[in-house]
């Protein structure tokens, strides 16, 4: 699979290019119990490099699923399969099924832009636009021409992102004037403004200080009440603290173990996982 968009603008695209529905024929049921995302033998190549090998897992609704593993193991690559961000990389090729509520997101009739409205994303480095806090939150909605009570959406999104009380008196000041932790929560508010079903987070706290990290971690747990959160983290203790399920990817793009977080951190099945999480290699 190839894409024509500039990969350097990928973060902007997810935040801005949203439209109605995944496809014309696809309904958008929300908040059903059970599996939201299901991958079946997903393989990804970057040119000749086989980045992910036969990844199969089912991600449950309204929960936090953490992806851990050493650098280069493919965890971020898998995250980017979920909202087809790998489309933006010319040499990337994806095979296998990855369904969002039963619909394969790689079907020809799926509009990646529409997909990304249902699957929001937050990145490692806070990336607010050089606009006001208010404009940052509603930017995606405005770009796609969605009308609504923006004041209400801004308040609701900022409250869900646990930022409202800190910025409610300066909504029209620049988002860039906020602290790093506040900027990241602004990005989360922006990601949830279109009311997605899934929130992908790629190391969302790795650039933050411990206090801001704690706030993000608390927020992730709260967000899981409304959204299905999938988070990539290098911090294993963070995965242990906030996730319900943990997927351990190891070198070679292999998903070695996927289970309840408690099971992974107390008694993993795989010796390789045990060795990785106890620091004996990796």
């Amino acid at each position: 699979m190839t894409g024509t968009e500039d990969p350097t603008n990928d973060e902007m695209l997810v935040q801005t290019d949203v439209s109605e529905g995944l496809s014309a024929s696809e309904s958008s049921p929300k908040r059903d119990a059970g599996t939201v995302i299901s991958s079946n033998d997903i393989n990804v190549w970057y040119g000749d490099d086989h980045a992910l090998t036969d990844i199969s897992m089912e991600i449950p609704e309204n929960s936090v699923t953490a992806m851990i593993g050493p650098s280069g193991c493919g965890k971020s690559t898998f995250l980017r399969c979920i909202n087809r961000m790998n489309d933006l990389i010319d040499v990337a090729r994806v095979e296998g099924d990855l369904t969002l509520r039963g619909k394969n997101v790689y079907d020809n009739d799926v509009d990646p832009v529409a997909l990304r409205r249902r699957v929001g994303m937050v990145f490692q480095k806070p990336n607010p636009f050089p606009k006001s806090i208010y404009e940052n939150v509603i930017y995606g909605l405005k770009i796609q021409g969605i009308e609504g009570d923006y004041d209400e959406i801004v308040e609701k999104s900022l409250k869900r992102a646990a930022l409202w009380d800190e910025v409610k008196d300066r909504l029209h000041e620049s988002g860039l004037d906020l602290s790093g932790g506040q900027q990241q929560r602004l990005c989360i508010a922006r990601a949830i403004a279109p009311d997605p079903e899934v929130l992908l987070m790629d190391e969302p706290a790795s650039a933050l200080d411990p206090v801001a990290t704690s706030q993000i971690e608390d927020l992730v747990e709260e967000l899981a009440e409304d959204y299905t959160v999938v988070i990539v983290t290098h911090n294993m203790q963070q995965a242990a603290r906030i996730s319900d399920k943990t997927a351990v990817f190891l070198t070679g793009g292999e998903l070695v173990e996927f289970d309840d977080t408690q099971k992974i951190f107390e008694n993993p099945e795989s010796q390789r996982v045990e060795d990785y999480i106890t620091g004996k290699f990796g």
């Binding site: 294993m236 242990a240 992974i264 107390e266 008694n267 996982v273 999480i277 106890t278």
Partner: peptide, 9 residues
């Protein structure tokens, strides 16, 4: 050290 798995046990 935040031990996990076999080390924690």
């Amino acid at each position: 050290q935040q031990p996990v798995a076999g080390d924690l046990r």
